[in-house]
Design a protein around this nucleic acid. Structure first.
Lengths: 143, 143
DNA sequence: TGCAAATAACTTGCGCACAAACTATTTTGG
DNA sequence: CCAAAATAGTTTGTGCGCAAGTTATTTGCA
């Protein structure tokens, strides 16, 4: 027997993420950022001066995805990329002042968005933990 | 103060969905389907002979996304598109026999994948409901 | 020391996801 | 009845997300 799409946890997750990114779009427009670009900035606000590899580990995005995102952020003047002196394969990514300053405004966007939902903090926290759990579980068994 | 990315529910959701789609890829490869294509097939297995508009409402994907997906499924011989006789703006999408038969094999892929995680059925169900809740909440306040 | 293996980043190709603009029908209200 | 508005679907352009392949540098080991 076939089930309704909405009975399927995978579809629910997929759809909620699309809704989330869609809801972020108008908020991020003010900062000329896409959601993945915002993720990268968010990572750098927490830990600056990292290599693409380290950024990849933190954001869970692969280098083929990150390279163009980081280049776009560079062309917007939010960060710089320079070749590492110790290891010339590595590129060190550093926030510019403009990139650092963005944090003050853009940092509570998540709060703003989450408050738009009527979910309690407990349910939001539950959702976060279930997502992290699924993520690690699926990452493990790559066989 | 800036928080870790993983402390952020939006990032957790985004990342879990990417993991999910990545985990689906090798399973769906056997059927020559992508995950969005699988969603469309899944919708049609439940309710056949629908317009693109109805498919859009069920899958929560917009027409600009669906048109190329449906065309690809048509070129794989899994469905047909014909102009509606009552309303010539509408296209009626119907599964072919090949498309219907796929259901038997591909229908329990979600089970297969979810069982790969170590999450209990209760936690999976909780995750599904939280995602649906967030989705409807974010969809409402489009102002 | 020298060279094969490993590593870091980049590039290419494909399929979404969606806004915005467009075409072709149907509905509607004056 | 008929022109304007609404509706269904397509097209175009942009930015992911990632597999697979490439280049350049470093590491490791014989």
């Amino acid at each position: 027997m076939s089930q309704r799409l909405s009975d399927n946890v995978c579809f629910a997750l997929y759809t909620a993420t699309n809704s989330l990114v869609r809801a972020f779009r108008p908020l991020l427009e003010a900062y000329d950022l896409t959601y993945p670009q915002y993720i990268v900035m968010h990572s750098l606000w927490y830990r600056n001066q990292v290599s693409l590899k380290e950024l990849s580990q933190d954001t869970h995005l692969d280098s083929g995805t990150l390279t163009p995102i980081v280049k776009r952020l560079e062309s917007k003047g939010l960060l710089t990329r320079r070749i590492s002196e110790e290891d010339e394969r590595r590129k060190v990514i550093s926030l510019t002042e403009k990139g650092s300053l963005l944090q003050e405004d853009a940092n509570e966007l998540t709060e703003k968005l989450v408050s738009r939902s009527n979910m309690t903090p407990e349910r939001i926290e539950m959702l976060r933990q279930l997502c992290l759990e699924l993520d690690t579980d699926l990452g493990k068994n790559v066989q």
